[in-house]
Design a protein around this nucleic acid. Structure first.
Lengths: 337, 337
DNA sequence: TTGTAAGCGTTATCAC
DNA sequence: GTGATAACGCTTACAA
């Protein structure tokens, strides 16, 4: 079932069918009608590969996700779903590519085989080889998180430094003097993961500014690690009365550790950080936190990418989101004993 | 950068370059070398659209996921990641399409625009309109879950009836006499979602067989609903001493409800069901449960799909997985008061 | 308002 | 062992 067949049955030429479909040149109402009838009858839809070849664009966006081995967190998940949704609004589809590990065959295929018109790169490193590959191919791309030379590229990010800083200030206001930052995994931090770097910077700087004693620790992205990590914190620094975190996946374990240590939140211990709102709501008690606006980030990333695709010579734009801190019930005044 | 350019620089014809790349006809070692050198130097990769058009296959699989409005659960998430990984092993990419709501434009594009060689359909209904659409297009597809006429199609499923039945038997052995099934959402059950139907059937039948009193309730897929649902259960049927569930998303709420009611698990109340192992492990206490083997299902689904793509006339095959029930710490003997 | 024909970059069928 | 050349199904100048 191809365009020629439709043309034949409608008694017109192939170009007329094409134009009737795209509207790129006027076609008489009568022929449009005849063509549409035939199309409806035969259930014709243009072949995407042929169209892509002729137009030089695939109407497909690539989304590079962390490999399956790394467990995807809740925000990442809803981010993926939102990207697909936002792309659909532009009548584009989304091609997935796991990358970051050794799976670079997939990255290669997607990027260099002209399978997509643009790419969204999740979980980016401060110096990311994939960014260079992408840059050298000239394929439009938007990163989630930004690289060192941030002015030269398109990105969407959360202002981790600012948010963490505000969390610390909030704790200082409540009288806390010894605080800890529960960061993400060792490897991620070691490899220069931007949000981790910036969270640490914002944390230490602000805590110092308020004359607080500040510790920061890495923690793998799972509940078991969260449990172990929190118990270690208690053992090493028993004076700590509040924690700030950007590690969502570890939260259930932290919760269990708090319970085990019979620490009431927020009476005995305060907990806050940058957390997806759904997780913050589900925590017991609900967490005072800066909500990672995954849906909005996805929307923005797709919009920026489409903008770049439609005008490749546009100057790079970016968005640094600073979502508000939602006051829930997990932070309170330091208890004097 | 196209194949003609490579041919020109290597001093051969386009077909020779093509054959050197595919190996579908012998090419002298010397020319292969020369060609490879040029390719390496220019960083050439064949254009996927052109290749798809010529070959009549896209080397892409479609994955139809539930729309973003429905929150994706943990298993679903890891399923998506595993599908991508398994497809990569066959050198195929994955195109995502949200569907089930009104997003049928996306489904249409993917299915009928010949953008993919086959489709994996998640979260299928007992009578699913998408299955008919797919069947009538003749596009190979595999469903997760099966439809009524199960012999005629390709699918992978978990034996919910059998697993739930074994959970109930386990509870019967422990002396429980009044049990409840916490199913998934009203709407899903009402629309004929297979796993829910089969779980209910297996539950009621087995409970009756053991002379137990059995109740079943629906519960929306989120923690708040889990909390409310469990409190309602306690209010309506205070004699119930054990629950079986297939609703993972509701678990955090159930946990909170148990805590609020000061019910110790498993001393005062037993909890089991069909749950992803990661979730079962993270629960407090770890849940005795049948682990949904998301990774294995994804692998199988992709393998079946590839088999069907490579031989469209093959007779339908399917796989009904019955993962073992892992004994953890959430079930115990009924406490006589 | 419509038709003709030249691409788009591959693969695959003939020849030689 | 290699080279022309015709598909593949569409879009889009260029003509009429």
């Amino acid at each position: 079932m191809n365009i020629g067949e439709i043309a034949r049955r409608a008694g017109v030429s192939r170009s007329t069918v094409s134009y009737a479909l795209s509207g790129k040149r006027p076609v008489s109402a009568a022929t449009v009608r005849r063509i549409n009838d035939v199309i409806a009858e035969l259930g014709y839809r243009p072949n995407a590969s042929a169209r892509a070849l002729a137009e030089g664009r695939t109407r497909t966006l690539g989304l590079v996700i962390p490999p399956a081995s790394t467990r995807l967190t809740d925000v990442q998940l809803s981010f993926v779903a939102s990207v697909v949704e936002a792309a659909a609004a532009h009548d584009h589809d989304v091609l997935l590519s796991p990358s970051g590990g050794d799976h670079d065959r997939s990255f290669d295929r997607v990027v260099t085989g002209r399978r997509v018109d643009g790419v969204i790169l999740m979980e980016i490193l401060l110096h990311d080889p994939r960014v260079e590959r992408l840059t050298s191919t000239g394929l439009p791309f938007v990163t989630i998180g930004h690289v060192v030379d941030s002015a030269a590229s398109w990105w969407v990010d959360v202002d981790y430094a600012g948010l963490i800083s505000r969390c610390v200030r909030h704790l200082a206001d409540l009288g806390h003097e010894q605080v800890v930052l529960i960061n993400r995994s060792d490897e991620l931090v070691a490899s220069g993961y931007g949000p981790s770097m910036r969270a640490t910077a914002g944390f230490l700087e602000t805590a110092e500014g308020f004359g607080m004693t500040a510790h920061d620790v890495c923690c793998a992205d799972d509940p078991a690690a969260g449990l172990a990590c929190f118990e270690q914190i208690r053992a090493r620094w028993p004076e700590v009365t509040a924690a700030v975190t950007i590690n969502e996946a570890a939260l259930p374990g932290v919760q269990r550790a708090l319970h085990r240590a019979e620490l009431d939140v927020p009476r005995d211990f305060s907990l806050t950080g940058v957390i997806a709102d759904r997780l913050a709501d589900d925590f017991h008690p609900p967490l005072t936190a800066a909500d990672v606006p995954a849906g909005q980030m996805a929307q923005l990333a797709v919009d920026l990418l489409m903008e770049q695709i439609n005008d490749p010579s546009a100057t790079p734009r970016h968005a640094l989101l600073a979502p508000p801190i939602t006051l829930r019930s997990s932070t309170g005044a330091r208890r004097r004993n």
